[in-house]
Amino acid sequence: MKPVRLLSSVLTVGGWTLLSRLLGFVRDVFITNLIGPGPVMDAFVAAFRLPNMFRRFFAEGAFNAAFVPMFSKRLEAGDDPEGFAAQAMSGLALVLILLCALAMIFMPGFIWVTAEGFYGDERFDMAVDFGRVVFPYIFFISLAALVSGMLNAAGRFAAAAAAPVLLNVMLCVTMGLAALTGYVSVVEALIWTIPLAGVAQLVWVWRDLRHAGLRLRPTRPRLSPDMRRLIAVAVPAALAGGVVQINLLVGQLVASNYSGAVSWLYAADRLYQLPLGVVGIAIGIVLLPDLSRRLKSGDETGSREALSRAGEMS
């Protein structure tokens, strides 16, 4: 397979990532101004943190960290990469369906564990209701992340990098329309748009698979040796990534005991995150599949050169 042009690919991913961060900041300004720190925003933040927390495991986090190198090596070797991806997608979809079903049933418990201070006031019931609406987002965004990993492995970075922009654009538009028309409340428009944005992101990246010359067809989930190996690689990554999520949850648990504190903590964290990771994220996304393919083909010299160029850019 043709080697990835590291600089141009990093600029592509970095540009879209920067745009997504900026639009995400605009989205948060909308949320803070149109809803405002208080019980409703507290409830929304706690509810939306749930799919975002699991997203770190099933989307851009542990699962993709295991899937992308394995898929890239199969793609380089011509070892039925589409079949492997279909198995991974079916297994992931099954786990996500079960997780979503459990979340719908036990959402009060999920909220109590992650925002115990809400219990006994209006924020708790609102967070439970909001959580049941937004949680299915994890299903669509996780499958979109898997498809994005396939595109990245094939050297097609633009569509996958642009997908997060859809979420922020859709949320900003619907919140703005809700505020202008008054047809529904801003928070209702916000929570119902989130799962729809997940669908849009999945459709967006799926369409680009055809241009990459790849197909992805659902198959019956089964625990094959390849899937066992995928799980074995993903679990340690999930445990490592879970440390950050635990820190965020501890902060939310403490803040949930004070009205409006969860909202302000969220706003501060989003502002802090704005300038971080644009270059690092872009390099990681581009470098991981490129290194995997080079190592699979025995191109150790090219691997060292790619790693050196990545170090220079970072």
Score class of each variant (00 low, 15 high):
R55P: 03
R74E: 05
F84N: 04
R55G: 10
A62K: 10
D125F: 02
V4K: 01
P108I: 01
I31F: 00
R74S: 08
A103I: 12
A101L: 15
A65Q: 15
F44C: 06
A85M: 13
T114C: 07
V13K: 00
L75P: 06
A66I: 01
P69R: 10
F57W: 12
L7N: 02
A62N: 11
A59C: 06
F106C: 12
V4F: 02
D121L: 00
S72P: 06
G120H: 09
G91D: 03
G117N: 03
A47T: 10
F57P: 01
G14Q: 02
A62E: 05
A66G: 09
A46M: 09
L92H: 10
L96P: 01
D125W: 04
G91K: 01
T17S: 12
F54M: 15
P51F: 10
A115E: 07
G109Y: 14
E116N: 15
N52G: 12
F67S: 06
A88K: 07
F71Q: 03
E60P: 00
N33E: 10
K73G: 13
P69S: 08
F110T: 05
M53C: 11
D121S: 02
F118N: 09
A88M: 06
N64Q: 15
L18P: 02
S90P: 03
Y119I: 06
G120D: 07
I105V: 15
A62Q: 06
D79E: 08
R27N: 05
A77F: 06
N33W: 04
A103L: 13
E116I: 12
I31W: 00
P3I: 09
D80A: 12
V10Y: 00
F58N: 01
A88C: 07
G117P: 02
L50K: 13
C100N: 15
R74A: 08
F54L: 15
A59L: 13
D80W: 07
D125P: 10
A93S: 12
G38A: 14
W16E: 00
L22G: 06
F118L: 11
M107A: 02
Q87N: 02
I111C: 12
V95M: 14
S9H: 01
A86C: 13
M104N: 09
F110H: 04
E122P: 04
L50N: 00
E76T: 05
V113T: 12
L92S: 08
